Computed example of a mutant assay.
Amino acid sequence: MFDHVKFGVSDYAASKAFFLKALEPLGVTVAGEGQPSYGVELISPNSKASLCLHQTEERPAHLHLAFMAENRRQVEAFHRAALEAGAKDNGAPGLRPHYHANYYAAFVIGPDGHNIEVVCHEPEA
């Protein structure tokens, strides 16, 4: 759907550490990095799309970022890792049948107040 998403963060080091830890269960790693004003590019295995973070003093509106998980275990692992990385819980892992029967997701609020979601659309294995 997209090539990359880039957004500013108020504390580059904290946000980089948060996203790497919280998204580790999805296999996300650093693809490239420059000065904090340029930022870091994060990518998951077998993906061409990336997430880029950069240092800024601007206060943009909060984002809702949803990452795709291969299975429900990854959703649960993300939620645990994100909370360990300092996120605030915004919805424990579970089914959200109001979206569709197999919508299994977890939500957290990241360092800059962004709503970070990991979702699996597959039925339970």
Results as ranks from 00 to 15, higher is better:
residue 27 G to W: 05
residue 54 H to D: 06
residue 35 Q to R: 12
residue 98 H to I: 02
residue 62 H to L: 11
residue 63 L to D: 08
residue 16 K to I: 06
residue 123 P to F: 01
residue 65 L to I: 14
residue 68 M to L: 15
residue 109 I to V: 13
residue 80 R to Y: 10
residue 83 L to W: 00
residue 44 S to Y: 00
residue 5 V to K: 06
residue 117 E to H: 03
residue 34 G to E: 02
residue 80 R to N: 13
residue 84 E to S: 13
residue 6 K to C: 09
residue 79 H to V: 02
residue 13 A to Q: 12
residue 68 M to A: 10
residue 47 S to I: 04
residue 42 L to E: 07
residue 67 F to H: 14
residue 122 E to G: 04
residue 38 Y to G: 11
residue 49 A to I: 04
residue 75 V to T: 11
residue 40 V to M: 13
residue 17 A to C: 04
residue 54 H to P: 05
residue 80 R to P: 02
residue 84 E to Y: 03
residue 75 V to N: 10
residue 103 Y to T: 05
residue 84 E to N: 14
residue 37 S to R: 06
residue 113 G to V: 01
residue 80 R to T: 12
residue 37 S to H: 05
residue 58 E to V: 09
residue 111 P to A: 01
residue 81 A to T: 12
residue 21 K to P: 01
residue 59 R to G: 15
residue 77 A to K: 05
residue 16 K to Q: 11
residue 32 G to W: 02
residue 53 L to R: 00
residue 93 P to V: 06
residue 90 N to E: 13
residue 90 N to K: 02
residue 90 N to S: 08
residue 114 H to C: 01
residue 125 A to E: 10
residue 39 G to D: 03
residue 73 R to P: 05
residue 27 G to M: 03
residue 46 N to A: 14
residue 78 F to E: 06
residue 52 C to E: 12
residue 120 C to Q: 00
residue 8 G to K: 04
residue 67 F to C: 15
residue 15 S to P: 00
residue 11 D to H: 09
residue 15 S to G: 11
residue 39 G to S: 10
residue 1 M to C: 15
residue 1 M to Y: 08
residue 15 S to A: 15
residue 82 A to V: 10
residue 25 P to S: 11
residue 88 K to Q: 15
residue 16 K to W: 13
residue 99 Y to S: 04
residue 74 Q to E: 12
residue 30 V to I: 08
residue 8 G to V: 09
residue 53 L to V: 06
residue 86 G to N: 07
residue 64 H to N: 15
residue 90 N to C: 09
residue 63 L to E: 11
residue 46 N to R: 15
residue 3 D to A: 12
residue 10 S to E: 10
residue 12 Y to E: 14
residue 10 S to G: 13
residue 12 Y to I: 13
residue 47 S to A: 10
residue 20 L to F: 00
residue 20 L to R: 06
